[in-house]
Simulated assay, not measured.
Amino acid sequence: MTTLMSTHSLQMSAGHLPLFDNLDLSIRSGDRIGLIGANGCGKSTLLALLAGQRQPHEGRIHKASPCRCEFVAQHLPVQLQALSTRAVLLDALANEADQAWQVDKMLTELQLTEQADLPVSALSGGQHTRLQIGRALLHQPNLLLLDEPSNHLDLPALLWLERFLLAWRGAFVLVSHDGRLLDRVTRETLI
């Protein structure tokens, strides 16, 4: 298996409290990793570091050239909240306007066609999660970093997420407190 990303002696603190110290981690193609821990222990911080959105205090992160990583945050960015569902997906393609046809295809795959012209503020939690995943998928990643996508989902949305992750052919790191979901879709667990 190809190593997509690795960390070497990664260190990060929150104030004077260490979140992790000398963390060595490898993510390979096809990995399905669950990341668990108490609230505030650094799970979201680790995903942000892996996504390149934050810098570690010490250590380094190596991203292999075949790695196409996308971070799926818990919430849509504030500046997108007033846009329509379609516009939020189009925003993800800002530098690829000639690929806008992909948005209609993605709306169908996400089961959001009927909500395409609604403002995202009118969407449910499950629809927000699908929209966040759709934004990431438009970039054709082979590694997804998913920060608690199962939060606040009703049963149909949770089942959609489970089916999506079971069918996903790339690697992922999934932060979740949903033990059933983790048991169903992941192969290894990091604590």
Rank of each mutant, 00 (worst) to 15 (best):
L138D: 02
L138Y: 03
R130P: 01
F71V: 10
R169N: 15
R130W: 00
V103L: 07
A116H: 12
L137G: 02
E58R: 15
F172M: 05
G134C: 02
Q132K: 10
V88S: 08
S124C: 01
R130K: 06
D98I: 06
S84F: 06
L153K: 00
S121W: 13
Q99V: 05
D91G: 04
A87M: 13
I133N: 01
S150W: 00
H128R: 03
L89T: 07
D104H: 15
L161C: 09
Q127C: 00
Q127M: 03
A92Y: 05
P149E: 02
L143C: 04
A92N: 05
V173H: 06
Q74F: 03
K63S: 15
D147C: 02
A87V: 05
P156A: 13
A87I: 07
D147H: 06
E96A: 15
H57S: 14
V103H: 10
A73W: 04
P156E: 05
H139S: 11
K63Q: 15
F164L: 06
L166E: 12
L83R: 11
M106D: 07
D154H: 00
H75T: 12
V175W: 02
Q127A: 01
L118Y: 10
G134T: 01
R169E: 15
L76K: 04
L131Y: 04
R130T: 00
W168L: 13
A82F: 09
L118S: 12
A73E: 01
F164Y: 06
W168F: 15
R60I: 05
L144Q: 04
L89E: 07
L80W: 06
M106I: 06
A157Y: 11
L80P: 02
E148S: 02
A94W: 14
G170Y: 04
R60W: 14
L155E: 13
D147I: 01
L137M: 11
A171K: 09
R86G: 01
